[in-house]
């Protein structure tokens, strides 16, 4: 014991300097990232916080400031991102499972797929929008400027992220789990379904949260898919025309009237709140799943 203390005493000057500097950088980083959020939220809030009311959620976009709100863009955003998540989450998870557990490791074909998925994650969103415009809106699918087309494009955008993160999560499950299960006579299916997948849920959920958050704020691809519109009704199905929050905010912000520019700030606050609530729900669900498994 005394030896340890004396050792610390001898090295303390240099060590504590490095230690202190490192800590300082950590604090600085967290200050910068939290400060940015604080700055954005507070400047939006001081500009438009007083405007927030349920009216903004129940009223539709309007040319008249007193009747203008965000209902149809908000519902449109939820439709598009909701459907995209329903499509992309299972597909992405199953793809990741296949690549990690069943595909032959190291053969050329799976390496090619891997490389492509990683490339897809880096493709600019607007390129997905152009693909959607050419093949889904106009090409052989010919779905038009509808919720369905938008959801398809957003799902394409989300897929690579979900696949990559899910693979990491599955890879992090200790091999001894599978080996133990297989040794006890479980089929590969049972090992994957009952052990690997539940263990990978927390990591997968984190990735999905990121993907959904990105999707709900996405505007560039949907700009090409006709989302920059004045729509005063909620979508009723996949064939409905639609508009989304980010582009309605953009439209309000570029209006000639100052009131609408304030309304745009209010819309940004609403969008942030929605994002926050969605993330919170996902985190709670993930925690529940984690606890269940540990019991």
């Amino acid at each position: 014991m005394s030896q340890t203390i004396s050792l610390k005493g001898r090295l303390s000057a240099r060590r504590s300097f490095i230690d202190g500097t490192f800590r300082l950088f950590l604090y600085l980083s967290i200050f910068i990232s939290l400060g940015m959020i604080f700055w954005i939220v507070s400047s939006l809030w001081s500009q438009a916080g007083w405007l927030l009311s349920w009216d903004l959620l129940t009223q539709y976009p309007s040319y008249d400031i007193d009747n203008a709100g965000f209902q149809s863009p908000l519902v449109g955003s939820l439709w598009v991102v909701g459907i995209a998540t329903l499509v992309a989450l299972p597909t992405g998870l199953l793809t990741a499972l296949y690549l990690e557990e069943f595909a032959g490791k190291g053969n050329k074909f799976s390496r090619l797929i891997e490389l492509n998925i990683q490339n897809l994650a880096g493709v600019p969103a607007v390129v997905f929008g152009l693909i959607g415009l050419a093949f889904i809106v106009r090409g052989f699918v010919k779905w038009g400027f509808t919720v369905g087309s938008a959801a398809a494009v957003i799902a394409m955008l989300m897929l690579p992220v979900i696949i990559i993160v899910s693979r990491e999560a599955i890879r992090a499950v200790p091999p001894s789990y599978r080996e133990g299960a297989l040794a006890l006579g479980a089929t590969p299916w049972q090992a994957v379904w009952r052990l690997v997948l539940p263990s990978a849920i927390p990591g997968t959920a984190t990735g999905s949260i990121l993907a959904v958050s990105r999707a709900i704020g996405e505007s560039a691809p949907l700009l090409l898919l006709g989302a920059l519109s004045f729509v005063t009704f909620n979508p009723t199905g996949l064939d409905s025309p639609f508009t989304i929050m980010p582009l309605t905010i953009f439209k309000y912000a570029s209006d000639s009237r100052e009131e609408f520019q304030i309304l745009a700030s209010a819309g940004s606050l609403i969008l942030m709140a929605v994002l926050f609530v969605l993330n919170l729900i996902a985190i709670i669900l993930r925690d529940i799943a984690t606890k269940k498994r540990n019991v």
């Binding site: 309007s62 040319y63 008249d64 400027f145 006709g226 920059l228 519109s229 004045f230 729509v231 005063t232 009704f233 025309p241 508009t243 439209k251 570029s254």
Partner: peptide, 28 residues
Amino acid sequence: SSTVGPLTTVAAEAFQKASQTKITVGIS
């Protein structure tokens, strides 16, 4: 046009109130 957009938007909004139609006005 984004210039003519407001005019048609005003018309569309009023017409939708007077009828049972659904009108979308895009700005590209």
